[in-house]
Design a protein around this nucleic acid. Sequence first.
DNA 1: ATATATTATCGTAATATTGCAATATATCAA
DNA 2: TTGATATATTGCAATATTACGATAATATAT
Lengths: 107, 107
Amino acid sequence: MGITKTQIFNTEQNELANTFKVLSNPARIAILEFISKQDACICNDIVEEIGLAQPTISQHLKELKSINLIKGEIEGKKICYCINLKTWAAVQKRLNFFFNTTKVKCC
Amino acid sequence: MGITKTQIFNTEQNELANTFKVLSNPARIAILEFISKQDACICNDIVEEIGLAQPTISQHLKELKSINLIKGEIEGKKICYCINLKTWAAVQKRLNFFFNTTKVKCC
DNA sequence: ATATATTATCGTAATATTGCAATATATCAA
DNA sequence: TTGATATATTGCAATATTACGATAATATAT
């Protein structure tokens, strides 16, 4: 159906899955990598770098913003996008918690 | 278009995104958590636990198997699914590498 | 061989995602 | 104000994902 039955899972499972979903696109990975390499991060540069149309990049940035992985500061007519260090660390910690607590008992 | 332009990204970016994609569904998160708690892991038990139809669970297991996150051993007419520790650790390491190397220079 | 139990595959419907053109909005510069 | 530049939003087409019923495949037990 394309629809996920979120109601049968708990909040932690849904949020974790959603975090993974935001990261599950190579364009968004590339955007994060590119932003992290720049001193100043401007959308138009991202468009040229990634090679996708401007609306597409804008949409990907919106998704990254939806979980606060990045933040954009308006600088004149440009926007300086950068990684939100606080969320970044929190997400990494959460993913590690998932990997560490998912232990193996069989096989 | 629903289609990702994988050709404009590098292998690392595509593989990383694909790994995140496999983990981007709450049912698959729940399956991994359930498997990790069991001594013996049988698909039929998973169906009862998760609350999705058997073909749906089977499909999710297939996706988890596609990147070797789990492995299934045939035990009679049942199958013992368990987490593939080797891949598990490798994936965790890879994700941490991504988080650690994506540094911040602006803002 | 037949019946039962377990898991996989196929086909299909509904919804989600990706990407872009067109357009809107916002900001600066002259 | 007008024009140029940068980013966001809308609308749409194509493909992907999710879920399930029906069915196939596999293995055991009788």
